[in-house]
Design a protein around this nucleic acid. Structure first.
Lengths: 162, 162
DNA sequence: TATTGTTATACTCTATAACTATA
DNA sequence: TATAGTTATAGAGTATAACAATA
């Protein structure tokens, strides 16, 4: 009755149908795949992608306010508070209430934080520098360009061909 | 001492530095952005991206085994179990122990499940059909093609130019 | 009144391992 | 032994709302 013999037995045989034309679906799988890669290569260092990006952005934008950082990284304010407090406790980040707006919190890397970013930079960019699986170098560059454009980042930062 | 006047006040002024050349960083932001879009447009229907993809893939692959589906969607087996049991309780999915391997579970949509997928298809593909923000149509097609290639999906499914 | 950060709660997803029943 | 699914637990991430201090 149920033609179970038709069912795919291997992952590669699963039909994706129209789903493989869904940008959201592709982005989700690509992101998981990329994070798996990240943890395979850098997991032993005890770092998380989110933490790395927060530290790097504070280093790149000394005195940035917590809320601005949260918006840029699309992290909820409540969650950002916890991350920053944890980093302050670990001596990586310094929080300062600026006089011109005493509701806000300005963020700085401590010496220890700067050192940590230094330590992470080599393995992180070594990981990022490897060719993305399945893509040629020009394809990878184009993929980054398109993602940046999709995100409205064009022209910000330092360019994507790192 | 702290040149706080240099600090960015607006999200657009935050320097991303080398980070905007990181594929993992770009994928993470793009995925969040895409899911925000999804929830803004389809949140009122009470659906989740993960559930939609599971239901659609069972519909596309009747009798698919639970573990195969989990691997294809990069969802952990333990989590897939919970999702499938919840869907069975909601009458959307039927579980069947196949005779040729009584350890495994084969999955089928119920009539209710098929109906649900039908109902979701219109708003879902209507959402996906809209132009991706910031990209021209050819750019969007190319972005999907590159993501599919990165994921090793080329040739699977029905093609990406939906 | 509105905004910034904080706190608290709940829920989703993930990571892990132990367990069962089958192979 | 190894595998498929289940169960349980802990943790990270997210969503939400309420709150205090400040604008």
């Amino acid at each position: 009755m149920n033609e179970i013999t038709e069912a795919p037995r291997k992952v590669e045989d699963v039909h994706l149908g129209r789903l493989c034309g869904s940008l959201g679906f592709l982005l989700r799988l690509a992101q998981i795949s990329s994070f798996d890669d990240f943890f395979k290569r850098l997991g032993h260092l005890g770092i998380r992608p989110g933490e790395v990006s927060v530290m790097m952005l504070i280093g790149e934008n000394p005195g940035v306010r917590q809320g601005v950082l949260a918006k840029r990284l699309m992290i909820k304010r409540a969650h950002m508070t916890k991350m920053i407090l944890a980093m302050e406790r670990s001596g990586l980040v310094k929080r300062e209430i600026p006089d011109d707006d005493r509701r806000s919190v300005a963020l700085w890397l401590t010496d220890g934080g700067r050192q940590r970013v230094e330590e992470l930079a080599a393995p992180f960019w070594g990981h990022e520098g490897r060719p993305a699986p399945g893509l040629t170098k020009p394809e990878e560059t184009e993929l980054k360009r398109l993602l940046g454009k999709y995100l409205g980042l064009s022209g910000k930062g330092r360019s994507a061909q790192a």
